[in-house]
Design a binder for these strands. Structure first.
Length: 507
RNA sequence: GUCUUGUUAGCUCAGCUGGUAGAGCACGUCACUUUUAAUGAUGUGGCCGAUGGUUCGAAUCCAUCACAGGACACCA
């Protein structure tokens, strides 16, 4: 049974004692008239008065009891609401006859949510507190809180029972407040630039727009399978064909792949598409976007990330091939020759799948020797066409695309390019992806002929970009696991779960 | 998917080369009207992740499984 723990039983018994005495342990008559942060702010002046108190003021605040120090006929408790923590002085003689001994001391405890009324005063130790003349239990907690000093540190408990993590670890609350602000600021930034926020399907007949394995679900009425989207890209571009000139979508993508410190099966990204612009414009708007975020989040441009320090005033821009030599240290005569690259990689003890083309091998070199060295924000540009199936070719050099990826602290944060809008070229790139799929690449793009048809009606020259919001938040909050920036990260069930599909089929 | 390290009271953790389970916090009882992880006294609290094996005897050794952390592989 869920409540058979003896500590829980003990607390249920306390709730029952209160009920039997006609006292509701789940009262619904809160009269709170301020928050703790406001209380502390408004009454800060009390410290400067002679008596260190102002009995003419009166406030009602509410919160969860985090600490309780009972000293006979008087007690200190610390209560916490969303805004902060407040010390409350509770003395027997300021409360109704019998309340302090019979109700407060015996049946109210750490973890319970209470409401207190009283006046501000400063204790002998100099802490602005509340001198209580009323105290009411609002919610009896029947499960005890984790240890008051160490809190809950077990990662499994923190992720599975995030509410406990939030109760016990104030830093966690901060992280998710920052996350919320990042999303809100992102929305505002693009709206202010004239972008239209849109919502495109999450259930796709073809999982397109990225190299990834999709989740499959089933539509009963139509008897067809649908894929959870791996990217919104192809729908957003259809909207550009339709005549919208600047659109964005902030929402979830789903990829059926491994989980680790930087991958969750569902993750949030923003993708935005901008007609009559190129990837050069995207570099400019991206810099502006970061400036906007740092400004509104009050972050220093020298931002610590683990052992690293990232200088957000030092955006760099370098073509991929050039970075292989200048940053990766790969000799220039190697980087343009597939055979020499394989030899070079083998000499370094790295084996690659046979049959990779030049562009793919350059990608290997980049992943191996360059990526982790990109600490300050760096736009890597001019990607080989072989690893950029949706990007527009450079007019000067058809082997490379008008594309960049933004790397910060050794990690990819954004991916952007001037979009391919030649429908015949797009068709042949899909066909190449089909060939790759046939030869065993199960992450190659699917043919999406409806999308190619959309392009056939003409898409204005367009630049598009995706930014991984989770990784961005990790960077801004100095967190090193994606689970620490997701309120409810994906976890395996503790006991074997039956297949959801089987259950619904029976209905 | 592979390797690796964990899993002991509600929480944080001890428990050595096998000999019937420990602390702190929390909780109960008592004392205490300005404390700061309040303090002092005292008591309750455990299927040692699960299942097998070795052994006279297993929290401890071995195997399998489950879950989690870390690393690698794949990716964003």
């Amino acid at each position: 049974m869920i409540f058979d723990n003896k500590f829980v039983q003990q607390r249920i018994e306390k709730a029952n004692i209160l009920k039997n005495a006609g006292y509701n342990p789940y009262a619904n008559n809160s009269k709170r008239n301020t928050t703790i942060a406001k209380y502390l702010n408004v009454n800060a002046d009390v410290a400067n008065t002679e008596s260190k108190r102002d009995e003419k003021r009166h406030y009602i605040v509410s919160g969860r009891i985090k600490l309780q120090r009972i000293m006979g006929k008087a007690s200190f408790i610390k209560i916490e609401d969303e805004s902060g923590m407040l010390q409350v002085y509770v003395a027997r003689d300021n409360l109704p006859e019998g309340f302090y001994n019979d109700i407060f001391k015996k049946n109210i405890e750490v973890g319970d949510i209470v409401e207190v009324g009283g006046y501000p005063f400063v204790t002998g130790q100099g802490e602005l507190s509340l001198h209580a003349d009323s105290l009411q239990l609002l919610t009896k907690a029947i499960s005890p809180l984790p240890e008051k000093f160490h809190g809950v540190t077990d990662k499994e408990i923190r992720y599975r029972k995030r509410y406990l993590d939030l109760i016990m670890n104030t830093k966690v609350k901060k992280t998710f407040q920052t996350r919320s602000k990042v999303i809100s600021l992102t929305r505002r930034f693009f709206e202010d630039k004239g972008f239209l926020e849109v919502e495109t399907p999450m259930m796709h007949p073809i999982a397109g727009g990225a190299n990834a394995k999709p989740f499959v679900t089933h539509h009963n009425a139509l008897s067809i399978d649908r894929y959870l989207r791996i990217a919104p890209e192809l729908y957003l571009k259809r909207l550009i064909v339709g005549g919208f000139e600047a659109v964005f979508e902030i929402n979830r993508n789903f990829r059926n792949e491994g989980m680790d410190a930087t991958h969750n099966p569902e993750f949030t990204s923003i993708e935005f598409y901008w007609a009559y612009k190129t990837y050069k414009d995207l570099i400019r708007i991206t810099k502006e976007y970061f400036e906007y975020l740092f400004d509104h989040l009050n972050l220093p441009t020298l931002l610590p990330y683990g052992d690293l320090e990232v200088n957000f005033a030092n955006f760099q821009e370098i073509p991929l091939i050039e970075s292989l030599t200048t940053i990766g240290g790969v000799p220039a005569d190697v980087t343009g020759d597939a055979t020499k690259i394989v030899e070079y990689l083998n000499a370094k003890g790295i084996t690659v799948k046979p049959g990779l083309n030049l562009g793919q091998l350059q990608g290997e070199l980049f992943d191996e020797f360059v990526e982790e060295k990109l600490i300050d924000p760096t736009f890597i540009t001019e990607y080989p066409v072989e690893i950029s199936p949706l990007a527009r070719r450079s007019d000067e050099n058809p082997a490379i695309t008008e594309r960049f990826e933004l790397f910060i602290a050794g990690r990819e944060i954004a991916n952007a390019f001037s979009e391919l809008n030649d429908p015949v070229d797009q068709l042949s790139r899909f066909e190449a992806q089909m060939a790759a799929k046939d030869s065993g690449d199960d992450e190659a793009h699917e043919m999406d002929s409806d999308f190619v048809e959309a392009l056939s009606y003409g898409m204005a020259p367009t630049a598009g970009q995706g930014i991984g919001i989770d990784r961005l938040v990790m960077l801004l909050t100095n967190e090193h696991s994606i689970r620490d920036v997701l309120l409810f990260p994906a976890m395996k069930p503790i006991s074997a779960e039956e297949s959801v599909l089987q259950n619904t089929d029976e209905e």
